[in-house]
Amino acid sequence: MALIELRDVSKLYGFGDATTLALDEISLEINQGEFIAIMGPSGCGKSTLMHIIGLLDRPTHGEYLLNGRHVARLSPTQAARIRRDTIGFIFQSFNMIPRMTVLENVALPLLYKGMSLTKRLQTASNMLERVGMKSREYFYPSQLSGGQIQCAAIARALVTDPKLIIADEPTGNLDSAGSRLVMELLSEVHRTGNTVLFVTHNPELTRYSNRVVYMRDGAIVHDEPTAIGDIAEGARRSMYIPHRTEEDDIAGVSALMSALPSFGDRPRIPMSENKRSRRRATTRRKTKERLH
């Protein structure tokens, strides 16, 4: 049974002449344990789809089965309970509450589960340790870098042990280093058995996913499985412009280091340096051909 099953889901905004079709009869099945990247130009309905899957919004038409349960027409309270227990959100703008410490922010979802204060902070602290943010527990979000805040946000999404992680452009506000940090963390989350759904504009990041869904004008135009570690074919064809930057070098070093036994507990990039350079050579050649 699929974890998520969308059947002819549509979402309309506005009335009369001003009606916009944000989602146009989308059908999508997502199985437990998938790491799905959703790509597409701005305004193609990616975020709307995320909101509907994340039960923040309701579809205008169509059916949505989450874990075999019809959830398209839930009451706000029922939807909130499902969000609380089975869905973890990661946002582009982090959405941390600025006047709370990182620890309190991470502990927040547990409050709505009715956990005691000590237990909340304990669980949150453990989760922060998992994402490598233990030393920043008592910092305020404003005192951290974007990448660090997003790591904390991931910890917050994970703290309730949800089945599904929804990340709406998690690296949208981050630089390359921050992006890498966040994506590696997400792929580790995926490896521990979670289903991860993320929206991105960066074809580079499709490397982490094992399935890429392309959207345009509210409809799914392409859906391809990809090997983890490879940039998806569609993404490469349509949007990928290869470039060698300092970040690539650092990535290479980081991959090397994670191969070392002493760094074994760090999230590793699951590809060999060898394979990487070979692929880079191919892409370089292909681009040259395309340009000529």
Partner: peptide, 16 residues
């Protein structure tokens, strides 16, 4: 309002 949105996304019910 933004904080309310965050809290709701994290699973707070209207009542809470």
């Amino acid at each position: 309002m933004h904080e309310i949105g965050i809290r709701k996304a994290l699973g707070a019910t209207n009542w809470q």
